[in-house]
Nucleic acid binder design. Sequence first.
DNA 1: TGCCAGGCCCTCTTTAGGGCCTT
Length: 205
Amino acid sequence: MERVAVLDFETTGLSPGMGDRPTEVAIALVEQGRIVERFQSLMNPGRPIPAFVTQLTGISNAMVAAAPPVAEVMREAARFVGALPVVAHNASFDRKFWVAELQRLSLPAEASFACTMLLSRRLYPDCASHKLGALIQTLGLPQTGRAHRAMVDTEMAAHLWCRIRDDVARRWRLPAVSHALLARAQATPKGKLERFFAEQQACEA
DNA sequence: TGCCAGGCCCTCTTTAGGGCCTT
């Protein structure tokens, strides 16, 4: 059974290109529909956290002051993920921080990212909101704690990922729904999803 | 000086604009 790494960053802002850095990362390794290993750490971003971000995440300058530097935590995070495919909610956001930080360390950042937000927009178009917390509530998945802390959001994204895999497997009667398949599905034009999985079903038959 | 993300997706679109989503 395939193992994937679900991850979430808390950061000082929205853009590494504008100098923003991570303040916390959480990673959950998911296999056979359950979390089998976890990694979580605060980190010192070396720049101030804006007050409104502290209000959003609960992560303060005082909390990260005693934390290890970003470089140290990201080396550990990269080791923990290894060559696994990655999953995140709005993965383009987490991916740009992942790539920016690993490039700073001259480490390879070639992981394939699947996005639970893009997949949810295709699979659950009737949901009023595709924010992580809203999807968890709408789909009746477990709420694991205070949103906008890395491990809580990671665990919610992990539950959502498992739900998406199950729903795709059931709806299109596919015996195996891989990360690679869903990474292709998330890039399929929204109106073409039925056809994409129907073709996949025909290949499996 | 003042401003500053960026990718996806929809529509009153495609020679564009604006909402969603992440911190």
